[in-house]
């Protein structure tokens, strides 16, 4: 039984089809990677799944509930939480306050603060608890995005390029953290350009191209397919 079932999902903007009849099924506790060239529709797909935008057609079923067309707020409360490629901290607040906002969804104010600090420890950001979130470096902001999403206690998390902007030395600890979270039982769908990370983490891989799913399956097999090579590197390859 899949945790997330996407059927014929389509999004059209003024004649341009950004996401075109996408079918994806994600089983519980699976780490699924999505790759594809820029403009393939990966971020739009995330927006449709997370309720940031309504789809033009198709269906999204999460945990046996049809959540198609639900608002972002409602989807998040149902246990499907996204992060953003461009970090969006609440800049007037400290790092701990940022995460507490998310923890509040399910607890009293006092418990939420304590819970949030626990989450910060989990993502190794606790030493910055009192720091103003606006002054965190990129690597810290990426972890803050992750911490806020985790504080919602999601069943499934949608990560939009959590490794982008990190220098190589910062990537390995982040990959390790994602692996641990997955090991704890979190279902993950992530969009990523850094292939080493994609191959290290993904149990299933979806390749998107021009808004469509080009192919999906076991990562090592998928990336060897000629059409994938072609989509990435051009026909002259």
């Amino acid at each position: 039984m899949s945790l997330l079932q996407v059927e014929g999902l389509t999004k059209t903007f003024a004649g341009l089809t950004a996401v075109d009849s996408v079918d994806i099924a994600v089983a519980d506790r699976v780490f699924l990677g999505i790759i594809g060239p820029n403009g393939a529709g990966k971020t739009t797909l995330f927006s449709l799944l997370a309720g940031s935008q309504p789809p033009t057609a198709g269906r999204v079923v999460f945990d046996d509930v049809d959540i198609t067309g639900w608002s972002a707020q409602k989807v998040a409360r149902a246990g499907l939480v996204r992060t953003f490629q461009l970090m969006r901290p609440f800049e007037s607040m400290s790092v701990l306050e940022n995460v507490t906002i998310a923890s509040l969804a399910q607890r009293s104010r006092k418990d939420a603060r304590r819970h949030a600090l626990g989450v910060l420890e989990r993502v190794q950001l606790a030493q910055y608890a009192g720091t103003s979130s606006g002054s965190l470096p990129t690597a810290g902001l990426k972890r803050l995005e992750l911490a806020r999403a985790l504080a919602m206690e999601p069943r499934m998390i949608l990560l939009d390029e959590v490794l982008a902007g990190l220098v190589p030395a910062e990537r390995a600890p982040m990959i390790e953290l994602l692996r641990e979270l997955h090991g704890d039982g979190l279902t993950v769908m992530f969009v990523e350009h850094i292939m080493a990370a994609v191959m290290a983490l993904s149990e299933r891989l979806v390749v998107m191209h021009d808004g469509r799913v080009l192919t999906q399956g076991v990562p090592a097999e998928v990336i060897a397919e000629p059409q994938v090579v072609e989509a990435y590197l051009g026909e002259d390859y």
Partner: peptide, 15 residues
């Protein structure tokens, strides 16, 4: 205050 700082992020956290 979260909504003031970033409405999109706030709604994605269930607010």
């Amino acid at each position: 205050q979260a909504v003031r700082d970033d409405e999109v992020a706030a709604s994605s956290l269930g607010i």
